[in-house]
Design a protein around this nucleic acid. Sequence first.
DNA 1: GAGTGGTCTAGACCACGGT
DNA 2: CCGTGGTCTAGACCACTCA
Lengths: 244, 244
Amino acid sequence: MNYTRRHDDRLPLYQRLHDEISERIAAQQWRPGEAIPTEAELVKQFSASVGTVRKAIDMLVAEGVLERFQGRGTFVRRARFDSSLFRFFRLQKESGERQVPEGRILLRETLVAPSAVASALRLPAHAEVIHLSRLRMLDGKPLLAESIWLPRERFAALLDIDASEFGDLLYPLYEERCGQVVASAEEDLTAEAVDDVHARLLQIPKGAPVIVVERTALGYDRQPLEWRRSRGPADRFRYHVEIR
Amino acid sequence: MNYTRRHDDRLPLYQRLHDEISERIAAQQWRPGEAIPTEAELVKQFSASVGTVRKAIDMLVAEGVLERFQGRGTFVRRARFDSSLFRFFRLQKESGERQVPEGRILLRETLVAPSAVASALRLPAHAEVIHLSRLRMLDGKPLLAESIWLPRERFAALLDIDASEFGDLLYPLYEERCGQVVASAEEDLTAEAVDDVHARLLQIPKGAPVIVVERTALGYDRQPLEWRRSRGPADRFRYHVEIR
DNA sequence: GAGTGGTCTAGACCACGGT
DNA sequence: CCGTGGTCTAGACCACTCA
């Protein structure tokens, strides 16, 4: 059967297959964009029937971990929330297709994690983190002021590269330079009256309402990789949800 | 086979079953809380195999339309977003279990739908609507100021009952008095600086940030039943999302 | 045409709930 | 105990992709 780890035999077979495949992806045995073995192959490897294998895969597809293409194969899904802002916020002026806002790094420093950051990243107290401050512009106007926190250990490579090499998107950089793949994220949204510092950064009146998004980005193993807090002028954001 | 409507024969069987069951629920052949026929029964009715029937039911469960209980049966799910506010917003002071905020009707009137309302409810221009204004309190403090719009035709019964009979929750009232069942909803979230009218209602300073939630409530047939706009002090709301 | 995932069948047996 | 949904099998055939 070739399991990399013992699973609880009381669990249904499809659940064990799901966990097994999930763990192999977390271990980067198959990387984002790559195909996993065919159904027939998995049937052999796990000595299960197609229906059971399909159920395990169905679950992973529903979770957004895998993607299926008839006739081609089943692939590890690359999280494409280049910026979730464009999947979840639709910029108020719906002028057409989604552009990636330009990102400029204002600050890069290493320091001991403040307690809120350490707890969000599940780091021990006094662990070192990298802090980035970043301003994102769209149509020449400030859209988001971001504070980004990363465990120093995993992301040390970011300290060596020139600030100009940081592109507009960070997650591809994390993958290429640090081998850290973001698989999912959790966000908390609030709103507040902007403070003076951010008012200046965002070029909005003092006390104007801003949206605050706190995001924890997670790997396939659900370890927190990044924590960021972003603030943007409220009137440029609209968030849409379906409720059942 | 007993289909209530012709379906496209090119669609997979499980898809046609899904649509068929979905339509019967929309037609109130089975009402919320009631059981649909057993899998064995559906197998007979549709002359399909169990696996196929189960796949159709799986889809409806995933959509939140049905609920399964091993050994008991499969039931039409009663939308339990008594207030979505408690499933999606966690009130800032996480002091324990969820209370339903007290709701007080401030105004009830009939008028011609403003164009934004008509379009949200997909009503013809100049259709009549019922407009409710409502203030919701929690711990004695104003939490939400709501404007609620309903198609007059479907909800005429609300005009006959005493304002004191409106409880803290409206959706059960819609079901009991008007036979209108809310199955799902769509919400748009924004934030803004509060205007003077709402500042007074919510007892917050002028210009303070408020969360604005615009919700369209839909029936099982996805017809819009209600449109409402709610405003609440931003510092009492925190919205949590998972992203994949 | 070879190989992939997609649909569908007709069973078997298990686990759970209510009587 | 019976009836419900839950798991699982071992196939068949279809639809699509790519060389």
